[in-house]
Design a binder for these strands. Sequence first.
RNA 1: GUGGAUGUAGCUCAGUUGGUUAGAGCACUGGAUUGUGGUUCCAGGGGUCGUGGGUUCAAGUCCCAUCUUCCACCCCA
Length: 454
Amino acid sequence: MAQKPSTPKGTRDFGPGQMSRRNYIFSTIRRVFEKYGYQPIETPAMENLSSLLGKYGEEGDKLLFKVLNSGDYLSKADAELLADKDSLKLSTQITEKGLRYDLTVPFARYVVQHRDEITFPFKRYQMQPVWRADRPQKGRYREFYQCDVDVIGSDSLLNEVDLIRMIDEVFENLQINVVVKLNNRKILSGIAQAIGAPEQMTEITVAMDKLDKIGDEAVYAELRERGISGESIELLKPVLKLEGNNEERLAELEKLIGETEDGAKGLQEVRTILSYLEAFDLKTVLEIDQSLARGLNYYTGAIIEVKAADVQIGSICGGGRYDNLTGIFGWPGVSGVGVSFGADRIYDVLTELELFPQATESFTRVLITNFGEEETPFALQVLRQLQHAGIASELYPETAKLKKQMKYADNKNIPFVVLIGEEERLSGKPTLKNMHSGEQLNVSIDEMIRRIHQ
RNA sequence: GUGGAUGUAGCUCAGUUGGUUAGAGCACUGGAUUGUGGUUCCAGGGGUCGUGGGUUCAAGUCCCAUCUUCCACCCCA
């Protein structure tokens, strides 16, 4: 047997059936984005590595797909590094492009590069694949689609309100029950300050983020491992143990971190967002979660994460505010806020919950059979009239056995078959068969069109 | 990057303590039905058992390596 064909690790093909379901997700999301006034952009699959490296932390750099330079790239490489097999240093000489890791960094690059053409605040959405050299597993792929919405150039918390409302609307339309978790980077930094470890905020948040997954004892252990003092851990315990509804949590947090500058600011931001949202009748549960951190360390304000309530698959949407994202491309002080919907995970959730609407694999409504050259001119004429009447139709291209042509229609779920053989050609009246009822009639073309339209 | 499982027909999977021509269902092709699908019946094609090496008189089966896919960890959508 020839070599078994396959797609690269962690990548997938999408057949017609999957595409119709995927497009259902994309069009649902796009409709909401556009309703709120966001405009689409696209950026290349590849970015310069200099734009990508260092933006996602050390872990992120390892997960970047690098594209080898074209041509005789080794001839330009340093002979000594080659001999040493020093991949890390060598890579800077043989590759200068990489596949994008997310849509936010390319967006920041886009904004800086095109700032003269953009009207701010700039509200954009972008739905494209991204690539990560991660080891694939459930709900995790090496190529997957993100649907990003961001607004850049506005500090207003009204943007956060916008985003949360869009999240609510998208998942309501998709009929997925979700929990929206909300936190604020300033609350996290307030916590770090309040427990006397302001320099170790990253270590603290990374450990704290695992709270609901590994439990409090394991979090304490990890904190110790990461070099947090026992004293600080003791102070942190009441923060981790926070319970109750949003009001109660905020009140508790006020007591614990209200004295710190960042903490007070963060709490106020969260309160403002919540109070704006009171005017809306949100369908989803909005939950303050002081342990929510998320990986990307460029967040500076709100942190948002969405989890499916009925499926265990990790987060299906997430994002937050970043005050200085464009700074890395030389334009400091521009604030942005946005979220990203994970289309592939949403697909998996909808599949598991059987929430996809009845998908029609084919759009074709009529198949015209092919009996041979004699009948072809009349068949083409019928095809033209059907299509002219706005009916998706196709003529079977081969003069195959009728059984095979019928089976083709059946497999593609085509509801009508028009038989055109010698009889029909001579009378000028095609035979219309309803595949569902099996009913079959010899009618004029006009009558046929009328019946199909019913 | 660490650990665990997996791989047999296009697909989903059987295959006994190692034993002679490796099976089933679905799909495909032909026929029962020369102008009729979805139901039924009959027949047929299709496999160097992931790859490479080893043990053995004998390997789909046992051992080693390697790759693939899946699962968990790390991290993340």
